[in-house]
């Protein structure tokens, strides 16, 4: 019984940690949906956003003001990216765009470190990374408060974004642009505004993801490497699906925790570092478009 309970605990911890991967992946999906660009810089955006946020807090800005200012800053980053990087590269091959966003990622990482330094910052959200007493009493499970918050925040973000896309005029425009940018702009949908909105939304998601990671592991450069794990998440979930990003994150989170706890000790541990990628390879062999992605059709 205790073994089963332990297993459940491991899975729950994995699932909740997985929501953090989902958050990074979510920003990626947003941009991919709107502009068919693999934004490799999403991980760097997470780092940039949360470092900016902590930086503004250190300047003495209150929590909410810092949050708003950071979002504005991310909007600016999105605007510049759209104008200076993506516009000139319109209609280029996917690989070219991908390489350009790798460059963008380096720019953002470098700028963030130049502006706010390289030392590890602590970020206190007022939510501890310790088990919640109430859940221990009722179910006998150890569940971290921070993990649970991350899960709830991720859920509400997804709900919000889904509503935004489904029921607002802006969202309708966005779906039109995603479908066919040329047709959308010819009927008068403001392409620029839509792109700005998407990049800002991706910036907000990056900030939230960064805050969650930062509260756990400190705001530091290692966040960029953690964010790389959003890539296998996307492969499992599919690049163009919001639910896919969530489910992919949960699968990766749970699997890597279970593997680490039950199989890791036989190999000296730390298999978390590569397990998600190998898992992604297996998914690629059987279902390259991911669980929820649209079937990849290549026309010759």
């Amino acid at each position: 019984m205790t073994e089963l309970l332990f297993f459940v605990e491991v899975v729950v911890a994995g699932l909740l940690a997985g929501t953090m991967y989902s958050l990074v992946a979510l920003g990626f999906v947003l941009i991919y949906k709107a502009s068919s660009t693999f934004n490799f810089a999403q991980g760097a955006m997470v780092f940039f956003a949360v470092l900016a946020f902590v930086g503004f807090m250190e300047l003495g800005l209150p929590f909410f003001l810092a949050f708003i200012v950071t979002i504005l800053l991310m909007g600016l980053v999105g605007f510049c990216t759209e104008r200076l990087v993506l516009k000139p590269l319109m209609n280029q091959s996917e690989d070219t765009l991908l390489m350009a966003t790798i460059g963008l990622g380096f720019v953002l990482e470098g700028l963030a470190q130049a502006a706010w330094g390289v030392e590890v910052r602590r970020l206190d959200l007022g939510i501890g990374d310790f088990p919640i007493q109430w859940i221990i009493d009722t179910f006998g499970l150890f569940v971290s408060a921070l993990d649970l918050t991350a899960g709830l925040v991720a859920a509400s973000l997804i709900l919000g974004l889904s509503i935004l896309f489904k029921y607002t005029k802006m969202g309708l425009g966005l779906r039109a642009v995603a479908d066919d940018p040329g047709a959308a702009s010819s009927i008068g949908i403001p392409l620029n505004n839509i792109m700005l909105l998407v990049w800002t939304a991706a910036g907000v998601v990056a900030l939230v993801a960064g805050m969650m990671w930062g509260a756990r592991a400190g705001v530091q450069f290692a966040l960029v490497d953690l964010a790389l794990k959003a890539l296998p998440v996307l492969i499992i979930g599919g690049f163009s699906s919001i639910p896919g990003a969530i489910v992919g994150g949960l699968i990766i989170g749970a699997t890597e925790k279970v593997l680490e706890v039950y199989i890791g000790p036989y190999f000296g541990g730390a298999i978390e570092g590569w397990a998600p990628y190998v898992l992604a390879i297996f998914f690629l062999l059987y279902r390259p478009e991911g669980l929820f992605g649209e079937k990849i059709i290549r026309r010759v």
């Binding site: 990087v85 000139p88 460059g103 963008l104 990622g105 470098g110 700028l111 470190q113 130049a114």
Partner: peptide, 24 residues
């Protein structure tokens, strides 16, 4: 020194973008 290495990163990134746009 950390600022210099950050500048180095920014320059590499910017160069990649510029090369992708003007001379792939």
């Amino acid at each position: 020194a950390t600022i210099i290495s950050s500048i180095e990163q920014v320059v590499f990134g910017v160069l990649i973008i510029i090369f992708m746009i003007y001379e792939p």
